[in-house]
Amino acid sequence: MSIQHFRVALIPFFAAFCLPVFAHPETLVKVKDAEDQLGARVGYIELDLNSGKILESFRPEERFPMMSTFKVLLCGAVLSRVDAGQEQLGRRIHYSQNDLVEYSPVTEKHLTDGMTVRELCSAAITMSDNTAANLLLTTIGGPKELTAFLHNMGDHVTRLDRWEPELNEAIPNDERDTTMPAAMATTLRKLLTGELLTLASRQQLIDWMEADKVAGPLLRSALPAGWFIADKSGAGERGSRGIIAALGPDGKPSRIVVIYTTGSQATMDERNRQIAEIGASLIKHW
């Protein structure tokens, strides 16, 4: 067993022997301040990774656009098919120029040779490549099948209805392509620590998230040296922004954090800054 596999296998073990965790309302004060600064709703939840206990939450059962955070769930569904012998990570998928959609920095470079399922998941999570996500959605049967996968996990809230990039439209009061912070946090925890996926697939999923290259201005910008984070960000229309993450000190994750916002007129930089400040408060009061 590799060191990384050992780390993920012992996530519940280490967490069980940690000192009790206590909620700190100071972080919620910052979440509410972010709402004021952005002029928009902000949803927040913080779960203990081992027990699933909610440590703090704000608007945990209000719907927010998922945006690209759905790509972690998508690759979880792909990995479940791999575990069941219905898919192979090494299978190569070929596609054409007509398949390319807006923001496809990886797939646009491989029109000639195609990409493997493993490479597509890596591109979808680490670079948020939209064509990679659409190609992977095709392998599982489309958005409705991802929703069905989530329902089978016990998540009857999260739903995907459309493809990239239309799913980022974020129309107010439109339930399409949305989740709730509580539902997303619980589902992410199941994917990373539950028995739904094999140990190898859980490790692969967290490795992809740990290698995320496009979430630097968010929670990662607030992390002290030595902290662990595996995350996936999302951005959408109407001032929408979000991030889902597993993080913790001492090089291992111990909490799940989900943050979503929508309806702001603020710039992307300002949305990023507010999420980073929430992260800084979380870490300060850990």
Score class of each variant (00 low, 15 high):
24 H>M: 11
24 H>W: 07
24 H>S: 11
25 P>R: 07
28 L>V: 06
29 V>D: 09
29 V>Q: 15
30 K>M: 13
30 K>H: 04
32 K>D: 03
33 D>K: 03
33 D>H: 06
35 E>N: 09
36 D>R: 15
36 D>V: 15
38 L>F: 10
39 G>P: 06
39 G>Q: 13
40 A>Q: 07
40 A>M: 04
41 R>A: 12
42 V>F: 07
43 G>S: 07
44 Y>N: 00
45 I>G: 09
45 I>T: 09
46 E>D: 10
46 E>M: 10
46 E>L: 10
47 L>G: 12
47 L>P: 00
49 L>M: 13
53 K>Q: 13
56 E>A: 04
57 S>H: 06
57 S>K: 10
59 R>C: 07
59 R>F: 03
59 R>G: 13
60 P>W: 09
62 E>V: 05
62 E>P: 00
63 R>G: 07
64 F>L: 02
64 F>G: 00
65 P>E: 02
66 M>V: 13
67 M>N: 15
67 M>G: 13
68 S>Q: 00
69 T>Y: 00
69 T>D: 01
69 T>E: 02
69 T>N: 02
70 F>E: 02
71 K>I: 00
71 K>H: 01
72 V>M: 15
73 L>A: 10
74 L>I: 14
74 L>A: 13
74 L>W: 01
75 C>Y: 00
76 G>R: 01
76 G>H: 02
76 G>A: 07
77 A>Y: 08
78 V>G: 02
79 L>K: 00
79 L>H: 02
79 L>S: 03
81 R>I: 07
81 R>H: 06
81 R>S: 06
82 V>M: 11
83 D>L: 03
83 D>K: 10
83 D>M: 07
84 A>M: 12
85 G>K: 08
85 G>T: 09
86 Q>Y: 15
86 Q>C: 03
86 Q>G: 08
87 E>F: 10
87 E>M: 08
88 Q>L: 10
88 Q>H: 08
88 Q>R: 14
88 Q>V: 11
90 G>S: 09
90 G>E: 12
90 G>L: 07
94 H>A: 06
94 H>I: 06
96 S>E: 11
96 S>D: 10
97 Q>D: 14
97 Q>T: 07
99 D>K: 05
99 D>N: 04
101 V>W: 04
103 Y>H: 06
104 S>K: 03
105 P>N: 08
105 P>C: 04
106 V>K: 13
107 T>S: 11
107 T>L: 09
107 T>D: 00
108 E>F: 15
110 H>Y: 15
112 T>C: 11
112 T>Q: 07
112 T>F: 12
115 M>K: 05
115 M>D: 02
116 T>G: 08
118 R>Q: 15
118 R>Y: 10
119 E>S: 14
121 C>L: 03
126 T>G: 05
126 T>Q: 08
126 T>F: 03
127 M>K: 13
127 M>N: 14
128 S>G: 03
129 D>Y: 01
129 D>C: 01
132 A>H: 01
133 A>V: 03
135 L>K: 09
136 L>F: 01
136 L>S: 02
136 L>V: 10
136 L>I: 09
138 T>W: 14
139 T>P: 12
139 T>K: 05
140 I>G: 05
140 I>F: 14
140 I>M: 11
141 G>V: 10
142 G>C: 04
142 G>I: 01
145 E>L: 08
146 L>I: 13
147 T>N: 04
147 T>F: 03
147 T>P: 05
147 T>H: 05
148 A>C: 04
148 A>Q: 05
148 A>I: 04
149 F>Q: 13
149 F>D: 11
150 L>W: 09
151 H>T: 05
152 N>S: 11
152 N>L: 14
153 M>Y: 04
155 D>F: 00
157 V>Y: 15
157 V>R: 09
158 T>E: 00
159 R>S: 10
160 L>V: 07
161 D>G: 06
161 D>V: 07
163 W>N: 09
164 E>G: 01
165 P>W: 12
165 P>F: 09
165 P>D: 14
165 P>R: 06
166 E>K: 12
166 E>W: 13
167 L>C: 11
168 N>G: 06
171 I>T: 15
171 I>H: 15
172 P>Y: 12
173 N>C: 06
174 D>P: 02
176 R>Q: 04
177 D>V: 00
178 T>R: 02
178 T>V: 04
179 T>G: 01
179 T>N: 00
180 M>K: 14
181 P>N: 00
181 P>E: 00
182 A>V: 11
182 A>E: 08
182 A>Y: 11
184 M>G: 02
184 M>S: 03
185 A>K: 01
186 T>H: 12
187 T>C: 09
187 T>N: 04
189 R>E: 09
189 R>F: 15
190 K>D: 10
191 L>N: 03
192 L>E: 02
194 G>I: 06
194 G>Y: 15
194 G>N: 13
195 E>W: 05
195 E>L: 03
197 L>R: 12
197 L>P: 05
197 L>A: 09
197 L>I: 05
201 S>D: 03
201 S>V: 14
202 R>K: 04
202 R>G: 09
204 Q>V: 06
205 L>K: 00
206 I>N: 05
207 D>F: 06
208 W>F: 10
208 W>R: 02
210 E>K: 10
210 E>P: 00
212 D>L: 03
213 K>D: 03
213 K>L: 04
213 K>F: 06
213 K>A: 04
214 V>R: 14
215 A>T: 15
216 G>E: 03
217 P>F: 04
217 P>E: 14
217 P>T: 13
218 L>W: 02
218 L>A: 06
218 L>K: 02
218 L>N: 04
218 L>I: 04
218 L>H: 03
219 L>H: 06
220 R>P: 03
220 R>Q: 05
221 S>D: 12
221 S>I: 14
222 A>M: 08
223 L>V: 15
223 L>C: 03
224 P>L: 06
224 P>Y: 04
225 A>G: 08
226 G>P: 04
227 W>F: 07
227 W>G: 02
228 F>N: 15
230 A>N: 00
230 A>H: 00
232 K>W: 01
232 K>E: 01
235 A>M: 06
236 G>H: 03
238 R>M: 03
239 G>Q: 03
239 G>R: 02
240 S>Q: 12
241 R>E: 04
241 R>I: 12
242 G>C: 03
242 G>Y: 01
243 I>E: 15
244 I>V: 12
245 A>N: 02
245 A>W: 01
246 A>R: 03
249 P>N: 07
249 P>M: 07
250 D>H: 04
251 G>R: 13
251 G>C: 09
252 K>N: 15
252 K>I: 12
254 S>E: 05
255 R>H: 10
256 I>S: 02
258 V>P: 00
258 V>G: 07
258 V>C: 06
261 T>N: 09
261 T>K: 11
263 G>D: 09
263 G>K: 12
264 S>W: 05
265 Q>L: 10
265 Q>N: 08
265 Q>D: 14
266 A>G: 06
266 A>M: 13
266 A>W: 04
267 T>C: 08
267 T>Y: 06
268 M>G: 14
270 E>S: 04
272 N>Y: 02
273 R>P: 02
274 Q>N: 11
274 Q>A: 08
275 I>S: 01
275 I>F: 15
275 I>M: 13
276 A>C: 05
277 E>D: 06
277 E>M: 10
278 I>K: 01
279 G>I: 11
280 A>I: 05
280 A>G: 10
281 S>D: 15
281 S>T: 08
281 S>L: 05
281 S>V: 10
281 S>W: 09
281 S>R: 11
282 L>K: 03
282 L>G: 11
283 I>D: 02
284 K>D: 11
285 H>M: 12
